[in-house]
């Protein structure tokens, strides 16, 4: 069940170089949400007609609140940074299917790149096994303390070497050689592409949460196409990131372009 909800912003703060956290009162959406799902947030401005699809960082069904973490990457996200606490924003959600959680697995490998990290925070609250989080970031990453607070063992790779391993997160995985029964990941497409390859070489199933430009977020516009070749099928098909995903198995994604 999806809801259109007008929620009051109760927090909108800068948490990193280019990242903001917004907490919104959304009782219906937060009661229904699952890890890895996203919400559409509308600017309400005539010149920006499309909703911004943003992954859910954490939700609290009891308090009826939901947090998103967004990167300032354009006019819409820039506008969001200006919204004071108390502002009402229209949201639609929860959207997408979220991660496929397998709690038979004793050891999970969780990989987040940049602004792909936020949805993995809610995810690890729902995973029973040991959680090994690998973060890839340009520079000092966000959310490390929160992940550790939730009991995760955190490994960090930064492009500039400011924290942890200097290099990318797949190189870090090569170095650490973690064992695990499932990889849960979210991040830039190029990172996920090499991660999926690493996962196949190491024979670990790998869930990747993707993003694509979308208009509706509910499967109607067919804008957010991703090439998927399901196991056992002879040809690829264009599936919708919003409705069929955003989480897919890495070995079913055709990583062209």
């Amino acid at each position: 069940m999806k809801f259109v909800e007008y929620g009051e912003i109760v927090e909108n703060i800068k948490i990193g170089a280019n990242a903001y956290k917004m907490t919104i009162v959304l009782p219906k959406i937060s009661a229904e949400a699952k890890p890895g799902q996203f919400v559409n947030v509308y600017t309400g401005l005539g010149e920006m007609i499309l909703p911004r699809p943003i992954s859910i960082n954490e939700y609290d069904a009891e308090k009826g609140t939901l947090a998103i973490i967004y990167q300032v990457s354009g006019k819409g996200s820039e506008y969001f940074t200006t919204l004071p606490v108390g502002t009402e924003v229209r949201c639609v959600g929860p959207l997408g299917n979220g991660f496929m959680i397998d709690n038979e697995i004793k050891k999970n490998i969780i990989v987040g790149g940049g602004i792909g990290l936020p949805p993995l925070v809610e995810l690890i609250k729902h995973l029973d096994g040991e959680n090994h989080v690998f973060i890839g970031s340009r520079t000092t990453p966000i959310l490390v303390e929160r992940l550790e607070e939730l009991g995760a063992k955190v490994h960090i790779a930064t492009d500039d070497g400011s924290v942890g391993f200097k290099g990318n997160v797949v190189q870090l995985l090569d170095e650490v050689k973690p064992e695990g029964g499932m990889i849960y990941s979210c991040g830039p497409k190029v990172m996920l592409k090499y991660l999926a390859k690493w996962a196949m070489e190491n024979n670990i199933p790998c869930q990747v949460s993707l993003e694509e430009r979308m208009a509706c977020g509910i499967g109607a516009c067919v804008g957010c196409a991703i090439k998927i070749q399901k196991k056992g099928e002879s040809d690829w098909q264009h599936l919708k990131v919003c409705k069929d995903g955003p989480v897919f198995f890495g070995d079913e994604v055709i990583w062209d372009e």
Binding site: M48, I49, R213, A215, C221, G223, C224, A225, H238
Partner: peptide
């Protein structure tokens, strides 16, 4: 099958 992505871009209004 349709076109390759990106298929959507926002413009002013």
């Amino acid at each position: 099958k349709g076109n390759n992505a990106p298929r959507i871009a926002e413009t002013y209004g």
